[in-house]
Design a protein around this nucleic acid. Structure first.
Lengths: 292, 292
DNA sequence: AAACTGTCTATTGTGGATAAAAGACAAAAT
DNA sequence: ATTTTGTCTTTTATCCACAATAGACAGTTT
């Protein structure tokens, strides 16, 4: 099959939720904007809803006939884009399955393993190569450089340089800059999670990403912001497969964040640098610990 | 045609030069190593040389029969890899041909223009996207972000951070580290070019790349070294299409380099920082001037 | 007049096919 | 005992085809 209709299926599922909340759906362009898809896909969704007797559709009239049932939804496995599937599958192989540095990566084998064409695997590897974990031998295989101690040290070195600079420029943002409001919301969430840490410590990972991305974004430098993608992917997969002491680690990091946030709000460069350094140091230690 | 045999043609041309210098060629594996290709390609080369009556080949005996003539070589256009062709073609479009920021980039149109398949163009764009000049809309076109003043400022900001740090770590290299010998050779070349600047100023661009790459490499950080690719490609194409005052600019940069090299050799952190900053500042100004 | 729908075209994402190139292995030569 | 060669298999680089998706335009509705 040439292309999976995952965009359609995913948008259809999201549209079912919209449908559950009203008695009639809006115009096609409006739905397209709401779902982030083209009118072509919107019309495919409406057609399908008509088939399922969910909707009476005649030109502008889109009357909801009944509430969606669980079986109306497409299963979650079918809504993942191919590149997500490849990414997960690849990360599992190299992070979870003890892959040795120096190992060869074979496009064809990977594609057969995942059950997909070589083109998609190849494109994934090219995109992924910017993370510095693999390297291409032209006309030949890829080499896995490995999630090693050196990798973590190099990554955190750059991260610290970038974040210190971003934090400094955060303090220089105008008082009415929207980032301050974002910071407020993030701080509130920190307090909420800390108050119920035993049950909610798992929410830290996502909040951590949101906070640091906000700081990096204030650098207004695309290279700094883009670099944060590497941090994100490393920490994302890393947290998934290393859950020792997660509760304590996350509680400590949340406290450090609060200190860091207070420093940002003080706009005092020295205080910001101290708080930022302290947090980055412990983040680095956490990462290094889990590697060996 | 599935794949162009540019590897073969390029290696064949290089092998002709080896052949011109001896009366018999070495073993197949040895030739493979010398040319950086596999034995399969070496054997294709030997076969072709036999056809052209350049070589009498029987197992280990590879006796040179005559000197290569100009018409024995494959034309230079046929030895460029497809990705190089796409890169050049694309860079000409976006740097030379006044491409507006925000412009859409169309894979199919680009492919037709260059006379190649869409897959190769697509892979090029994915690889190229890490340079921050283009951005993908999923399921849709690419957007050209443009070689703008902001781009140059963001690029140089990171460059300066990275180079200052690399220069500092350069001073910390052991006295017998090979980088010091490389630095000597580079310094000598600077003096040679300066002594005959009117004729040789065009050699600066390549020397500049070599010098800064050497400095960046001493950081031992793959992210810092990889980032230098962006600098390289920007300056490479930039110099090609902006030749105003090249002689004066290059002479000045060479002097700055010599000062910078002397500072590195002094191992005095403060002096290194001063020299490095001064040179980076003027490099930034040169780049910015040429943008507007 | 502005927004919406019907219809049609163009482009992207992905699998499959194929020549070029890499590389494995055993037999042969030094 | 290495190294080299002959032969064969596997993988990569590239083109092409086609379904999914985006997007353009004219006619229709409010």
């Amino acid at each position: 099959m040439a292309k999976q209709n995952t965009v359609f299926k995913d948008a259809f599922n999201r549209c079912l939720k919209l449908l559950a909340e009203t008695s009639s759906l809006p115009s096609e362009p409006e739905l397209g904007t709401a779902l982030g898809v083209s009118r072509t896909t919107v019309r495919a969704i409406l057609t399908r809803m008509e088939e399922l007797q969910l909707l009476a559709w005649d030109k502008r009239a889109k009357v909801v006939l009944r509430q969606p049932k669980p079986e109306d939804y497409y299963p979650a496995e079918e809504t993942d884009s191919l590149s997500d599937i490849i990414e997960r599958s690849f990360m599992r192989r190299i992070l979870a399955g003890g892959a040795e540095p120096g190992m060869q990566i074979n496009e064809l084998e990977l594609a057969r393993d995942i059950g997909t064409g070589t083109t998609s695997v190849r494109e994934f590897l090219i995109r992924f190569s910017r993370f510095g974990l693999i390297e291409k031998r032209p006309n030949s295989h890829w080499i896995l450089k490995g999630f090693t101690r050196e990798f973590a040290l190099e990554l955190t070195e750059v991260r610290e340089m970038f974040e210190l600079r971003s934090a400094a420029s955060f303090a220089a943002l105008a008082p009415d800059h929207p980032a301050w409001a974002d910071l407020d919301r993030i701080e509130t969430l920190h307090h909420e999670i800390l108050a119920d840490i035993d049950n909610r410590y798992k929410e830290f990972s996502e909040l951590d990403e949101r906070f640091h991305l906000l700081v990096h974004t204030s650098s207004s430098n695309r290279f700094i912001v883009d670099f944060y993608d590497i941090i994100t992917i490393v920490f994302h997969y890393h947290y998934q497969w290393n859950k020792t002491n997660a509760r304590e680690r996350n509680a400590r990091a949340l406290e450090e964040h609060l200190d860091y946030i207070a420093a940002l709000r003080s706009r005092d460069p020295a205080r910001i640098e101290t708080a930022c350094r302290r947090h980055l140091k412990s983040a680095r230690e956490t990462l290094l610990q889990s590697i060996q």
